[in-house]
C-alpha cells in the first residue's frame, strides 16, 4: 500500500513536471545558449556548477561569520548565479524552482545586508541549497523528456482547446512568480496582463457559461489582486500564494470545461 501511494505520488510529480515544463522560448537575462536544447550532454556541467555555487555561497557566508558585512560583498551572491549555464537550463525548463532559487539568492543577500545573525543567514543558505538541488533534479528529468522527444512536442503545441489554454495560463503564472522573485516586478506585471489578454480572456466566454462566479473571481485576481500585490511589493511567498490560489481556480475551470466539452452536441 505504501509502495502504491509513493508510486502514485511519483507519477503525479512527473505529470506535474511535464505540464509545468515551459512551452515557449525562455528569456533568461543573458544569452540562453544552445545547451538548453541538449540538456543530457550538459548534465555533468550543471552538477558541477551547482556544487560550485554552493561552495561560493558558503564561502561568502563564512566570511560574513568571521568579519561581518564589511568582510563581504552581498552583490556577489547574485553575480555567481548569473555566471552559470545552469541558470538558463532551469529557467527554460522548470520555472517554479527557478523562482525559488531567486528567492533563496535574495534571501541570503538581504540577510547579509540587514546584518542578520549567522543562524538566520544559515537558514537562508539552506533554503537556497535545497532549491538548487531541486532544480538540478528537475533539469535531469527535463533532459530525459527532451531525449524522448516529449519536451519538444510540448514546445511545438499551440493550444487548440480552452482546456489547453488554461494549462498554458497556469504555466505563465509560474513565470510571473519567477520574474517577481528575480526582482523584475514590471516584467511580472506585464506577463500577468499579457496572459489575461492573450490567453485567459479567450476562454472566459466558455467558462462563464459554466460558472460565472468563478470567472468573476479570476477576473479580479488577474486585474486587481495579483498586479496590486506585485506593485505593492508584497513578499515573493505572498505572490506565490496568490498564484497558487489562482491555479486552484484554474484547475476547477479546467474540470468544468472538460465536462462541458464531453456533453457538447456533435456538429453533424
Amino acid at each position: 500500500m505504501t509502495f502504491k501511494t509513493s508510486q502514485h505520488t511519483g507519477i503525479m510529480v512527473i505529470l506535474g513536471l511535464i505540464a509545468t515544463f515551459f512551452t515557449t522560448a525562455a528569456s533568461a537575462n543573458g544569452p540562453i545558449g544552445d545547451h538548453v536544447n541538449d540538456l543530457q550532454s550538459h548534465l555533468g556541467e550543471y552538477a558541477e556548477e551547482v556544487v560550485w555555487m554552493i561552495e561560493q555561497v558558503d564561502e561568502i557566508v563564512a566570511n560574513y561569520e568571521r568579519g561581518g558585512l564589511t568582510n563581504v560583498d552581498p552583490e556577489q551572491v547574485v553575480e555567481i548565479w548569473e555566471e552559470v549555464n545552469f541558470h538558463a537550463a532551469i529557467e527554460s525548463n522548470y520555472v517554479p524552482v527557478y523562482a525559488s532559487i531567486w528567492q533563496g539568492l535574495f534571501g541570503v543577500r538581504q540577510a547579509i545586508e540587514a546584518q542578520q545573525p549567522i543562524a538566520e543567514l544559515r537558514t537562508q543558505q539552506d533554503a537556497l541549497e535545497q532549491s538548487l538541488w531541486q532544480g538540478l533534479g528537475a533539469v535531469k528529468l527535463a533532459a530525459q523528456f527532451q531525449t524522448r522527444g516529449l519536451v519538444a512536442n510540448i514546445e511545438n503545441t499551440v493550444a487548440t482547446s480552452p482546456v489547453e489554454t488554461l494549462t498554458q495560463v497556469g504555466q505563465l503564472l509560474d513565470r510571473v512568480v519567477a520574474k517577481y522573485a528575480e526582482r523584475l516586478p514590471e516584467e511580472a506585471v506585464s506577463i500577468v496582463f499579457d496572459t489575461y489578454l492573450t490567453r485567459f480572456e479567450g476562454v472566459e466566454g466558455d467558462l462563464i457559461e459554466q460558472d460565472a462566479d468563478l470567472v468573476e473571481d479570476l477576473e479580479v485576481d488577474f486585474n486587481v489582486t495579483l498586479p496590486q500585490a506585485i506593485e505593492g511589493a508584497a513578499s515573493v511567498d505572498a505572490v506565490r500564494d496568490i498564484v497558487n490560489e489562482m491555479k486552484t481556480k484554474l484547475n476547477r475551470a479546467r474540470a468544468l470545461l472538460e465536462e462541458a466539452e464531453a456533453n457538447r452536441p456533435s456538429v453533424f
Binding site: 496582463f193 489575461y196 489578454l197 480572456e201 472566459e204 466566454g205 462563464i208 470567472v215 468573476e216 477576473e219 488577474f222 486585474n223
Partner: peptide
C-alpha cells in the same frame, strides 16, 4: 481590459 469585463 476586455469586453467580458465590461459586461460583468
Amino acid at each position: 481590459a476586455g469586453e467580458l469585463g465590461v459586461v460583468m
